[in-house]
């Protein structure tokens, strides 16, 4: 597998050159967050006071952390499903000018449009990889809102080295790897359903008035 290593923060040139489906790893500083980060940053204007210009890679994860002799040990760091942050994704990208998002699944069209504006990309995980990724975390620098949010939703700032691999699921032009695939599956569905013996034009019995399926 050919893996291209990218330095963080992502440069405009690198962002521009990354292609859908390309396999990459990243080196530099990352910060973590999930639902609570997104909701609080946008609804309440509460967010960790880190330098987002330098620490610009937002990793969607709730790591499993363990304290050993005053030091934090990463037990596992498995990317979480980014698509569920879509309500706030675009606003978060614009607010912090984020040019690298990493997670599981993908983001929706609004976030893809915001990434295009700032010249950013979304990277999606390969397989289940939390144990492999933890070996590439060289240092846990800081944790924000630990008492308030707990270990899973807190924001961890970490330094990583050849962290990955991931693949480019949204490029800096707003294209999404999964969109084409989904369209192709949708196109195949009528034939698959016909082969299953589902009559053309078949629908479930509607019992809720005319607004259902409207």
């Amino acid at each position: 597998m050919n893996i291209r290593n990218i330095k963080l923060p992502l440069s405009p040139e690198d962002a521009e050159s990354l292609k859908l489906g390309e396999i990459v790893s990243v080196s530099g500083m990352i910060f973590t967050g999930r639902s609570r980060f997104h909701i609080r940053a946008i609804e309440n204007d509460i967010y960790p006071t880190i330098n987002y210009h330098d620490i610009n890679c937002f990793f969607h994860v709730g790591p499993v952390m363990k304290k050993e002799n005053d030091d934090w040990e990463v037990v596992s760091i498995e990317p979480t499903s980014s698509i569920r942050f879509e309500r706030y994704g675009a606003d978060v990208v614009r607010k912090f000018k984020l040019r690298t998002l990493i997670g599981k699944t993908t983001m929706g069209p609004r976030t893809a449009a915001a990434l295009k504006e700032v010249g950013g990309v979304y990277l999606s995980k390969i397989g289940v990889c939390g144990n492999q990724l933890k070996a590439q975390v060289s240092k846990v620098h800081e944790v924000y809102f630990l008492d308030e949010l707990g270990k899973t939703e807190a924001t961890w700032v970490m330094e990583v080295e050849n962290f990955g691999p991931f693949f480019v699921a949204i490029d800096a032009h707003g294209n999404n790897y999964f969109e084409n695939l989904d369209q192709s599956a949708s196109n195949k569905l009528p034939e698959i359903e016909a082969a299953l013996g589902i009559p053309a034009g078949y629908d479930f019995t509607i019992v809720n008035g005319s607004t259902e399926n409207a």
């Binding site: 994860v61 709730g62 790591p63 499993v64 037990v75 596992s76 760091i77 498995e78 979480t80 397989g127 289940v128 990889c129 939390g130 144990n131 492999q132 933890k134 070996a135």
Partner: peptide
């Protein structure tokens, strides 16, 4: 590979 690592004591089969 991730499962092999966790089976040898280095993490979890999945972090969630």
């Amino acid at each position: 590979k991730n499962a092999e690592l966790s089976e040898s004591g280095k993490g979890l089969v999945c972090g969630d």
